[in-house]
């Protein structure tokens, strides 16, 4: 009698056949360190960041946003340093995603200031008219539920005590409700009055977004100075287009497309500072401006060297200069 006339034997045989591949590609890797590397520089989420992560999961943000930058040249230029296995040691579940209807978020932490995120989450089209991301303003109208925060971090083994968790929550609440929170004005504009002194779901999800890739970036910062010199887009110290009208016009287009969201349509300022006045935080020579645009700044200005490149950055500078000369 063959197996084709013995259903139970057949079932057992198929179980064995499917378990071979399962064993080799699944069970063996589970026991290898390479699928679960840990590194000191990667820190677990705080209770607030974790609550934000759970909201990210609840809303299914992973259906449109990935969280893995692949080691490809254009991808690194667009998003930043490619993703490393150890970054995800605290991620249960993982959130790499499978579809990029929106951009990757693995390096979004620290890329923009909090105010950018409040504005963007509340109404993406107020910043990018053609974006198709849903508006999530209602997150700011819901008080954050922290009832399970401690149980959550304990299940995940983050090693916080109950009072650690309470402190983290209280500290974060103090931070976002304080009078000198830089994003205060935008936060208040999206948060209803009765919740302004509380933590909302919006606060938590922004805390989470700001955590993404932060540890990797901190590590990178140390090496930055060396890398900046060797970067493929090298800065000439002088603006090759200085005074050119044509370059200023092209620069204006580039500016409107990339910079106006934060600095205003006419560089008059918004989330980012006014660029038509005489105040410069990071120096006012052409070369200083170039560095700020190319490398970004600690207060939320993204680095543009990969996205724009040498020539475009100089054209933008030409445009910015032309704005001042008009006054």
């Amino acid at each position: 009698m063959s197996v084709y006339s013995k259903p139970i034997t057949f079932a057992l045989l198929s179980a064995v056949v499917i378990l071979v591949g399962t064993f080799i590609t699944l069970f063996i890797p589970m026991m290898l360190p390479s699928t679960q590397p840990v590194s000191d520089y990667i820190k677990p989420y705080t209770a607030i960041e974790l609550e934000g992560r759970d909201i990210y999961i609840r809303e299914g943000c992973n259906n449109c946003h990935t969280q893995t930058v692949r080691p490809l040249r254009t991808e690194v230029a667009r998003y930043g340093e490619y993703s490393k296995p150890e970054e995800f040691a605290y991620d249960r579940p993982f959130l790499w995603g499978s579809r990029r209807t929106g951009p990757d978020l693995n390096r979004v932490g620290g890329k923009y200031p909090d105010s950018w995120h409040y504005k963007h989450m509340n109404d993406p089209r107020s910043m990018f008219a053609k974006s198709n991301m849903p508006a999530y303003g209602w997150l700011a109208k819901r008080k954050l539920d922290t009832k399970y925060s401690y149980r959550k971090v304990s299940i995940l083994g983050y090693g916080y005590s109950e009072s650690d968790v309470r402190n983290q929550i209280e500290e974060y609440r103090k931070k976002v409700t304080s009078a000198d929170y830089p994003a205060r004005a935008v936060r208040e504009s999206v948060t209803p009055p009765e919740l302004r002194s509380e933590l909302t779901e919006m606060d938590a999800i922004i805390a989470y977004l700001q955590k993404l890739g932060r540890d990797v970036k901190a590590l990178k910062k140390k090496e930055m100075r060396m890398v900046a010199e060797a970067s493929p887009v090298t800065a000439s110290k002088r603006n090759p287009f200085a005074g050119s009208k044509k370059a200023a016009e092209e620069g204006e287009k580039i500016f409107k497309k990339n910079c106006a969201v934060c600095h205003g349509e006419d560089a008059e300022g918004g989330i980012g500072p006014n660029l038509t006045d005489d105040k410069w935080r990071y120096g006012n020579s052409d070369s200083d401006l170039y560095t700020t645009i190319s490398e970004g700044s600690p207060n939320g200005m993204p680095s543009w060297k990969g996205k724009l490149g040498n020539e475009a950055i100089w054209k933008v500078i030409t445009f910015i200069r032309s704005q001042r000369e008009q006054d």
Partner: peptide, 19 residues
């Protein structure tokens, strides 16, 4: 965590591989 919420027993790359 409660009736409506749970966490995967696997983490990171391992969780991705299982998924």
């Amino acid at each position: 965590v409660n009736l409506f919420k749970s966490y995967s027993i696997y983490a990171g790359a391992n969780d991705a591989n299982v998924e």
